[in-house]
Structure formats: C-alpha cells, structure tokens
Design a protein around this nucleic acid. Structure first.
Lengths: 190, 190
DNA sequence: ATCATATGAATCAATAAAGATTCATATGGT
DNA sequence: ACCATATGAATCTTTATTGATTCATATGAT
C-alpha cells in the first residue's frame, strides 16, 4: 500500500479545511475560520471548545498524517528515487496538513508531541543520508539541508499553486525535477 | 554598487527585528513583540500606534528593501549566474525582511502596494525568462515556477538556519547549488 | 409522520488585547 | 551640572474575541 489511507471518522475533511484556513489567516477569528470552512461558529465550538484545543487537535492529526506520509512512502525502498516519488505524491495529496504543520512547527516543538518532530525530520534525514551513501543524492549538501530543501520546495510549489502562479497538473513531476535536478542547465550549472 | 545600502534613519534595525518577531510569533501580543525586540510596549506604541500601522509600515519598508535587493542585483547583467549570485547574497543579507514579506504576502496584495507584488514577481519572472532564453536556466519549468522555487529554497534554507539545522557559513553557496543543480547526482538525476 | 440529532443564528458574560495616558527615570549632548 | 529627549513601568478605558448558552430549524433514519 503506497497511498495514505483516509481517516475513519470523517473529520479528515473538516480538519484539512481548518488547517488550510489557519494557514490562510493565522490571525483570523474563530468566526472567520468557521466561515472559511463553511460551518457556523457554534458548530466549530462543538468541534473544539477553544482555539488551543483546535490547534493541538490539528497538530495531533497532522503529526499522524505526516507520519503516514512517510510510512507509506516506504523510504527503505532500495531505490531512493522511487521512494522520493511516493513521498512527493503523498505530501501533495496531504497539502493542507503539510502546510499547516510546517507553519505551526514552533508549536509542535513546545507541545505534547515534542519529539515527533525529531522523529519525522530524523526519518527524512536518514532517508537522504542513505540516498547519499548509494550515490543518488549529492554529498556536498548535508542530509539535514536536503530535508529542508525538499520540504521548502514542495511547500513553496504548493503555495505557488494556491496563488495561481503554478499549474496544478504536473506538480509532482515539477517538484521532482526542481528538487533533483535544479533550475540550471547541466553544462552551465556544473 | 552591488550591496543593498542601509537606510538613513536607523529604523532599519528595529524594523528588521520587528519583522523577525512577527514571523516568529505571528499571533504574539504587542507586548510580546516589544519584548522580543527589546523595547517596551510604550516605545513600540510611540513607533506605531496600532498593529495594522506596524504591519503596513513593515510592508512598505519590506517592499522598498526587496526592490533594492532586486535593483542592486543588476538582473540585466549579461551573465545571469552572476546576477543570481548577487540576488542570493542580497536576499540573505535581508533575511528578516524577506521572510516577513513572503510570510505576509497576502496582506501585501490587499494593501496599498497592491501592484508592487506583480512588479517584484514580474521582475524575477522576467529575469529567469531571460536566463532561459540564454540557455542558462532550464526551459521545461516555467519562469514563474522558477521564481517560486528560488524564493522557497532561499526562505527554507534561511529558516533551517534559524532552527539550527543548517550552518550559517556557506549559506549562499548552498542556496546556489541547491537551486541550480538540485539534490541529485548528475548521472542519476538525468 | 415522528423522533433523534446536528446545525445555525443570536445573545451574553468573562476575558484578553489594543489603544492611550501619566509619571518617573535614564541617556546624550552642551 | 543642565537641559532636551527618549524610554520604561504602570495604569486605565475601550474594544474585540472568546467561551458558553439558548432556541428555532433543518436533516435523516425508521
């Protein structure tokens, strides 16, 4: 199984929408957020009594989702490039949650799931390190930096797509080319 | 002249610090922000009476700074790679403002300087397009996408540096390699 | 049709933050 | 030492947001 399975209780839709709304308007009022996801303030209240509860719930959810994203990418695949493709596809599929978690990274650190962060980063770091050892990823950039670059390219492209600057179709391929090969032409860039 | 000149009235320091603080804690209270930059709430109040005023002032400042960043990079240089190097160096130098503006992009759109955005993006788009026409940048990625990728790589690396995941030294070179050549090894990535 | 449940609109009290002011003190130039 | 100016701490009012409740209505299953 390579795709991230959908959650059972279908809060997933609502949670993803709320994640997106919170990234769009981090300082928006609870009413703003409710309106943004198409429910009333009262219903949002019944879902989460306080803003803190909402955020920590989204963080918990996001942590699970991104853990699944990594899990389902099967990073231990003998072919790092295949694993990377699955990783990209899964992240793009979970774009709202991904954007939210990267946005609220700081609160993840101080929150309950304080060491999940190191887990997630650690798994990616390890993945890129393995790829480096196999000669697939360049070694003059640290594995940690590769993780950062990979994440920011993906988030940046997804954001560009939301702003209408980048076409939705072919995002996965675009991300892959941008991350793996860069913007330069081989002869010039070398 | 290739470096971005410092502002005359030395609000620059304060403005940059405030920009950083606002990126760090977007929902921070005015008192939080004041403390974060080492001044009292009263002084911050004298500097900007309202939060909106503070933000629009930072946006104005940021717009000017980033315009200078682009201006001083001399993007019409016959060698796009040299121009890109200056662009990177200038952006890194103005990291706080850069991060702030990209973070508050949305408010730039709705604000006064509504068309500056298109100017700035437009200039970068045009720069990458020229580079593509010269055969320096790859043509299977749109110039707009190149702009997005370039910006997110830079911001992502700067953010990684702030979080202590990436060494400060060599950031410029790292950004250049990551953006131009990508993470893959030539033979494999092709 | 009936019932249970979910939702929305509106209201309200409690709270937090913003906006504004005062006064005492520190700082820097002459 | 003296003055002008800038800053900080504390206070206060006003405003906005939160957290909570009520009631009327919609929805869906049986």
């Amino acid at each position: 199984m390579t795709a991230v399975p959908a959650s059972n209780e279908d809060n997933s839709r609502l949670l993803a929408a709320l994640a997106l709304a919170l990234v769009d308007q981090p300082r928006g009022t609870l009413q703003d957020l409710a309106k943004a996801v198409g429910i009333s303030k009262a219903t949002l209240y019944r879902f989460c009594r306080t803003r803190d509860e909402l955020i920590s719930r989204l963080i918990d959810y996001g942590v699970r989702v991104l853990a699944d994203v990594v899990q389902c990418a099967e990073l231990d695949d003998p072919s790092p490039l295949d694993a990377l493709r699955r990783l990209n596809a899964n992240m793009i599929e979970q774009r709202e949650v991904a954007a939210f978690l990267i946005y609220y990274w700081r609160e993840v650190v101080s929150g309950v799931s304080s060491d999940w962060q190191t887990d997630w980063e650690g798994k990616l770091d390890a993945f890129f390190l393995r790829g480096q050892q196999q000669g697939v990823f360049r070694i003059d950039i640290t594995a940690q930096a590769l993780t950062e670059i990979w994440a920011s390219v993906l988030i940046g492209l997804l954001d560009g797509e939301r702003r209408g600057r980048i076409a939705r179709a072919g995002l996965a391929g675009l991300a892959e080319r941008a991350f793996l090969q860069g913007a330069g032409v081989a002869a010039t860039a070398g």
